[in-house]
Design a protein around this nucleic acid. Structure first.
Length: 320
RNA sequence: GGGCGGUUCGUAUAGUGGCAAUUACACCUGACUGUAAAUCAGGCGCUUCACAGCUACGCAGGUUCGAGUCCUGCACCGCCCA
């Protein structure tokens, strides 16, 4: 563990109220937020991702490398990092995020402030916090395209020959995972490195306090529904239309999932407005469920009520 | 009143003599090594460790070694003719 590396991590399913809690914590404890959301990183994806309504503004930070100020994404007076900066046409990977976030954490600590990781992208958060070694193999689209034509069965038997150890633990029906594993093995000529994640015993790269919010399912579901209706009013469909006009293919939009997928289907007239609503609602609930499945096994997380008081108390104790 | 079609596990469907019964969705549980809002798996009548038992395809009878499947009557739904 890195010494003197206290960080706060706020997790919870979609619509649980993470962003607001994180902002309150940041205000109270002199923090800056690092958004951990694989969709909010993209510019132009605002309503559909539920991005906080922050603004890019120039912040005075005193003389630093010959500059007087940086441009920062600010919401409620709190600086948010790794949000609203990437081009949606390009793939942004877990590995890129890991490096960028770890750099941000170091910078924030250096400034004497508290880094607060907040977001719903479980895999990305773990990659950062547990400093997982992600194989240094970039996506090889040509190779992937070739492998995608094979059945999972064939991919699995290939992997079994090339890297029996990885084959032993991989999901043999999941073509995407199989292809990635083969990509690593074929490119490096070596087996897939063993993963450095450990949920138990809990060893994190940082001195971390994990706070989780998980409202009861019926409350969460009604919040999700209410939020979706709001998003529709706010012009969610128009946002997706605009993205498509800017050159994002329907396929790319579908790959983003949820709002972007179902609005895309609506705009292509593949589904009706009612179908869009009901199917999207269902998909968001499924997503929330998957998030909880991931975090349930993480015993580091302290589950708190959505009210700030408990979170404040725990944070105060953690920082003392 | 007459003719036809239908009634199957939450919903929609398959099943014309061997069926605890197809498929999809929902629902439940879970996985997750650079696409992660993505991708993938298991369960889903009841009792169970069960290849075991019990109860099941609108209701009531009948034919049969055996009926979701065939026959009769009834109920309900849909369409058509009056």
């Amino acid at each position: 563990m890195i010494p003197n590396s206290k960080i706060l991590i706020v997790v919870g399913p979609t619509a649980s109220g993470k962003s607001e809690l994180a902002a309150s914590l940041a205000k109270k404890f002199n923090g800056e937020i690092i958004s951990c959301d694989s969709r909010q990183i993209y510019k132009g994806m605002d309503i559909g991702t539920g991005k906080v309504e922050g603004k890019w503004s120039k912040i005075k930070i005193g003389k630093n490398h010959g500059r007087d100020f940086y441009t920062r994404f600010v919401y409620k007076g709190i600086t948010h990092h790794l949000i609203d900066f990437a081009n949606a046409k390009k793939q942004y990977s877990a590995s890129e995020f890991q490096k960028a976030a770890q750099k941000k954490i170091a910078e924030i600590i250096k400034r004497g402030r508290l880094p607060i990781l907040c977001g719903g992208t479980m895999h990305w958060i773990d990659a950062v916090v547990y400093n997982q070694t992600l194989p240094e193999v970039k996506p090889n689209l040509k190779l992937r395209a070739r492998l995608e034509r094979q059945s999972a069965d064939i991919l699995f038997s290939q992997l079994s020959k090339l890297d029996p150890a990885r084959a032993a633990t991989i999901d043999r029906f999941n073509s995407r995972r199989l292809i990635r594993a083969l990509e690593i093995v074929i490119t490096t000529g070596k087996p897939v490195p063993v993963l450095s994640t450990h949920y138990s015993p809990p060893t994190t790269h940082y001195d971390a306090l994990w706070l989780g919010i998980n409202p009861p399912q019926d409350i969460l579901y009604s919040k999700i529904e209410k939020r979706l209706k709001q998003r529709i009013k706010q012009g969610m469909v128009a946002e997706v239309k605009k993205l498509h006009k800017q050159g994002l293919s329907w396929k790319r939009l579908e790959g983003f999932g949820l709002e972007y997928k179902f609005c895309g289907l609506l705009l292509q007239k593949k589904i009706s407005k009612d179908e869009m609503f009901s199917q999207l609602l269902m998909a968001i609930k499924h997503y929330a469920k998957r998030q909880m499945t991931w975090w349930k096994r993480n015993t580091n997380i302290i589950w708190v009520k959505p009210d700030k008081n408990t979170a404040f108390k725990l944070t105060k104790k953690f920082l003392a």
